[in-house]
């Protein structure tokens, strides 16, 4: 009897190599081009590290110091946005899921809405709000995190809701309550650990969106990484590209750290050994 070949669930090595190679190229080409651009020696031709060494030997002084300040602003904004997401969105989603399931459609509509509004239109609406906010709470860069909280809403909502749908939140919370846990303990000890993946994915996206956002910051006259890079690029395009590369590396490392947090003790990869008993 002829042997039956197992159904292939994963692509073969050449196919995998081709797919990964193609995707890698899409990402690598612009980055390699940026690096090549920063190494050019100008009209004389050839390549060297003079622009990189000049930047680092100068210690980010002069106009480049603004970039460091702007980077600090952006990181602070990212943290603020993530905090707003965690403190506002996660409890609200849980409340709707557990107590007011009929509001879910409305919640989804409200959360998805910002993705359909162009940033420029959003700013037109936000400008009068921010003029009031400036009188009440000042016009510090941190106030941008409110606007960013709105812009990351669709992405964060999707990530957390997907996780929420995959966990029997109602039964877990009821089990915890019958075991003597108050709502605070239910949230901290049971729900958040089980929604960690969704929350981290939401935080991941929030950080990425905030670090890459330009339109709202520029139109509301706040200094962030993206707006400061634009200013530098007008004076020195080579240094602007170097700073962009550094920002890219920083964002990559930051997201890597956040991603690592999600891998802490899940126990999910252990082999299953239990049978029905």
């Amino acid at each position: 009897m002829a042997s039956v070949r197992p159904v292939a669930h994963t692509p073969t090595w050449p196919v995998r190599g081709f797919i990964l190679g193609s995707i890698g190229l899409v990402f690598a080409i612009p980055i390699v081009a940026m690096v090549e651009f920063t190494l050019r020696r100008g009209l004389a031709g050839g390549h060297d590290f003079s622009r990189w060494t000049a930047l680092f030997q100068g210690g980010f002084t002069g106009p480049y110091r603004t970039v460091l300040v702007a980077l600090g602003n952006s990181v602070g904004l990212a943290m603020g946005t993530v905090a707003i997401m965690l403190l506002l969105l996660v409890p609200t989603l849980l409340l709707v899921h557990l107590r007011f399931p009929r509001l879910r459609r409305l919640m989804e509509f409200v959360c998805i809405l910002p993705i359909s509004i162009p940033a420029i239109v959003l700013v037109v609406g936000l400008a009068p709000v921010y003029s009031v906010l400036a009188r009440v709470a000042g016009s510090g860069v941190w106030t941008l995190s409110f606007a960013y909280g709105v812009t990351v809403l669709p992405f964060a909502y999707r990530a957390i809701q997907a996780n929420l749908d995959g966990v029997d939140v109602r039964t877990l919370s009821e089990a915890a309550r019958t075991l003597g846990a108050g709502w605070g303990s239910v949230l901290v000890r049971v729900l958040i650990p089980n929604l960690r993946r969704g929350i981290l994915a939401g935080a991941f996206i929030a950080v990425a969106v905030v670090l890459g956002e330009f339109t709202i910051a520029s139109l509301l006259n706040r200094i962030t990484l993206q707006t400061s890079l634009l200013v530098v690029s007008k004076a020195d395009p080579y240094t602007a590209v170097i700073l962009s590369l550094l920002a890219l590396t920083f964002a990559f490392l930051l997201l890597l750290v956040i991603g690592r947090l999600g891998l802490v003790r899940t126990g999910r990869r252990r082999p299953t050994t239990g049978g029905q008993s």
């Binding site: 966990v167 009821e174 089990a175 915890a176 019958t178 960690r196």
Partner: peptide
């Protein structure tokens, strides 16, 4: 619920996965 001092086993599997 948390203060009624009861033990409960649910129909669906309710062990905390984490």
């Amino acid at each position: 619920t948390s203060r009624r001092d009861l033990g409960m086993v649910f129909q669906s599997y309710s062990l905390f996965p984490h």
